[in-house]
Design a protein around this nucleic acid. Sequence first.
DNA 1: AGAAATTTGTCCGTATGTATC
DNA 2: AGATACATACGGACAAATTTC
Lengths: 143, 143
Amino acid sequence: MPTSHYGQPRYRAIADELRKRIESGVVPLGTLLPAESALAIEFRASRGTIRQAIATLREIGLVTTEHGRGTCVNPDFTAHIPNPVDEKAKRQRRVAAEPELAALLKVEVGATLIEDQDVTCRERKVEAVVRTYRVLNNPTGYA
Amino acid sequence: MPTSHYGQPRYRAIADELRKRIESGVVPLGTLLPAESALAIEFRASRGTIRQAIATLREIGLVTTEHGRGTCVNPDFTAHIPNPVDEKAKRQRRVAAEPELAALLKVEVGATLIEDQDVTCRERKVEAVVRTYRVLNNPTGYA
DNA sequence: AGAAATTTGTCCGTATGTATC
DNA sequence: AGATACATACGGACAAATTTC
């Protein structure tokens, strides 16, 4: 039964409940959460929904998950600081074509180019910065 | 915002983007694509849409999907014949981190970064130049 | 050292309800 | 009205890492 989710989706309610248990000490720091399959039975939800709930806890750094082992309550849990760096990093600007870019894109040196900047993250850390240069004409590149 | 696909459906645009990444070598042959759920987050699309995009790539034999494992870029994919422009453009070099990159990657200004350059082509024309910056990491992984 | 059990990761197919073009 | 897309949810299966016996 996919239950109509009018107010709050189930995975969020489950995530809240798990967070409460951690913060209240029912599940001590540094210990493993019950297995996904066990939680699925307890909450009468599918494993996918449980995983979604746990994913939200992982995003705020409350737990860490290891393949084949389990989901561990982060012992370093003090205050989670969501990282706004992703949003800041994402931006678009116009730059003048330097010789190499100009040659590749077949425009004159100094022509206006669109530079899109994005970052790829891993484990909430910036892993790489990607800059894409296009001719001002067609942003999507789709003809 | 459930859609604003001008002209082309979302799943096709995503398929095009993935194909570009494969053809430009951002996703090497023989490696796994990010999980459907990861792509869903990156493209801000639902899993269903991602699956639809991947399905089109599978139809043209660009990738193969294995149940429980992932979607693999077909190593036998030979349709991609790099033209001379690609070869010239593709290169790697080391650059000094300018302030913005340094801040994002959390290194000191002037630190050595790896810059990979690639081009994406369409109809034998260079469409965009992509530059990826990574920290020069040591092989052992230890500090 | 090796087999079995446990657990997470991923994919498959399907379904419901809503919203937009 | 139909096509597209979104978010949510289910259940089942296989793959891979880890732990236990």
